[in-house]
Design a protein around this nucleic acid. Structure first.
Lengths: 103, 103
DNA sequence: TTGACAAATAGACAATCGTCTATATAATAT
DNA sequence: ATATTATATAGACGATTGTCTATTTGTCAA
């Protein structure tokens, strides 16, 4: 897995459409078409957003015949959020809790 | 405090300069000039970024005479990260831990 | 009240981003 | 082989963003 970069992570999340895609493939595997059908943007746009999520390490990818399936990488989400909290909320109790849960 | 919006939050963090500013005023109060002096961008640019952080509720502001002091709102950082984790990593153990710590 | 300082705002401009259509690539079915 | 289906890539284009300089606003000191 590529290194966690808090700016890259934030950039990946910094778009409404991308967050909707993340929601769609959270806790389940979706083909690109599954996603396209549930959104109001074109297939290339969905592929474009998936590429950004892929580059940020935020999705797992599985190719199966013609189709490509994506699912959200929850572990990575936790790692990135945890890193943000340690960096930008070091004095909060919840950050301690997260640090403990991550170690 | 304004409502927590995960896209707005991510957008606020989605810039290297802004994250550097956040780091500078994490755990202490900084005047705008304090920040400008430690960065390689102009004063208006710093003010611009601070405005974005302000609109995202990510900083506390205190005016004192001619100066305006900013400090990172760590509680908000935790709330936003927690929300992201609940939304995008609901099956992770650490998310449970954060939920518990936040309630 | 005038001058100096601190910060915010306005406006310009280049770079990045999100979207689209058109096309390419790759796998499968006929 | 050819057609069909699924996804990715290329290129164009408008919108948004980050930066700058110039200016404004507000506060304090002389």
């Amino acid at each position: 897995m590529s290194k966690v970069d808090p700016v890259l992570f934030a950039k990946a999340l910094a778009d409404e459409t991308r967050q909707r895609i993340m929601n769609l493939c959270c806790c389940k595997w979706c083909s690109v078409n599954d996603i396209v059908e549930k959104m109001d943007v074109s297939q290339p746009t969905v592929s474009h957003h998936l590429a950004i999520l892929r580059e940020a390490g935020l999705v797992h990818v599985r190719e199966e015949g013609k189709q490509t399936f994506y699912t959200l990488n929850q572990e990575r989400v936790v790692a990135c959020c945890g890193q943000l909290m340690v960096k930008f909320a070091p004095e909060e109790k919840a950050t301690e809790a997260i640090s403990r849960a991550l170690s």
